[in-house]
């Protein structure tokens, strides 16, 4: 960051902060309690948290794609029906046990690995992991080389092939860059849950649970402690934030 040339005059930030001080209470750096918004604490990326998902394939209804639709609407990546070039931040996958014939469906998106292969291979540092475990692409420095797409064992990333218009303000996306599930980071920063989880709950299936894996009292941690779950490709030892049950 090169802002050293800036004069020492009060910045816009300082001026607005001084005005806003009456309405808010600074609890700690990055944590602000909004006086008018009840007890809702607006928190930025917190290194003490690790966000994760628990997906119960047993509750994931056959043919239901509410999570996929919700994600496309929320982040504005709806394609043109070109399967080879359309972006896919989340997809429904059907698994079939060849021996028994049992099938199960589950959504697969960026698994938000603790040691992400996409970050390892990125030549520019555009692929990065946020303090709270969310794996993102800094599109300002992404050169579109697509090494991350090759490195990802889950096919979780997409390349934007054509110029895009009408993006969402909170989800910028553009031609020549790689993108993927952000775990709805803009919602998390506002204290909300990802759009897919919200949509899944709205269908009544309730197959997805979102929460902090580091907090033993969170619902996701309690469920993980209670019944068996696994990560996809456990042999790779990536310790993903997204976990599955009843596959």
């Amino acid at each position: 960051m090169t802002c050293t040339q800036k004069p020492a005059a009060p910045t816009r930030r300082d001026i607005l902060k001084s005005g806003a001080a009456m309405a808010t209470l600074q609890l700690a750096p990055g944590v602000t309690l909004m006086a008018f918004g009840g007890s809702e604490a607006q928190a930025a990326a917190d290194a003490g948290k690790r966000w994760g998902l628990l997906i119960d394939a047993g509750k994931c209804a056959e043919g239901c794609s509410a999570c996929v639709t919700a994600c496309a609407d929320e982040n504005g990546w709806k394609g043109k029906g070109d399967a080879e070039r359309d972006a896919q931040w989340i997809r429904k996958v059907t698994l079939k046990n060849k021996a028994t014939g049992r099938t199960s469906e589950l959504p697969v998106m960026c698994q938000h690995c603790e040691s992400p292969p996409c970050v390892d291979v990125c030549p520019t540092g555009a692929s990065f992991k946020r303090k709270d475990g969310i794996v993102l692409v800094d599109k300002h420095i992404c050169i579109g080389c697509r090494y991350c797409m090759m490195a990802c064992p889950f096919k979780a990333r997409s390349f934007v092939h054509e110029p895009v218009t009408n993006q969402k303000t909170h989800a910028p996306r553009g031609v020549g860059t790689v993108e993927g599930c952000t775990l709805c980071v803009h919602r998390i920063d506002a204290g909300r849950i990802p759009a897919c989880v919200e949509a899944c709950a709205a269908t009544g299936n309730g197959a997805m649970v979102f929460g902090d894996l580091r907090d033993p009292e969170s619902e996701i941690s309690r469920r993980l402690a209670e019944y068996p779950s696994l990560t996809l490709r456990p042999d790779l030892d990536l310790n993903q934030g997204v976990r599955y049950a009843e596959i």
């Binding site: 802002c3 930030r13 930025a44 946020r130 709270d132 980071v185």
Partner: peptide, 16 residues
């Protein structure tokens, strides 16, 4: 300056 704050630190209340 503020884009980096938002992207890496998740500060959504930035002014610029």
């Amino acid at each position: 300056h503020d884009r980096d704050l938002t992207m890496y630190d998740g500060e959504r209340g930035v002014n610029a």
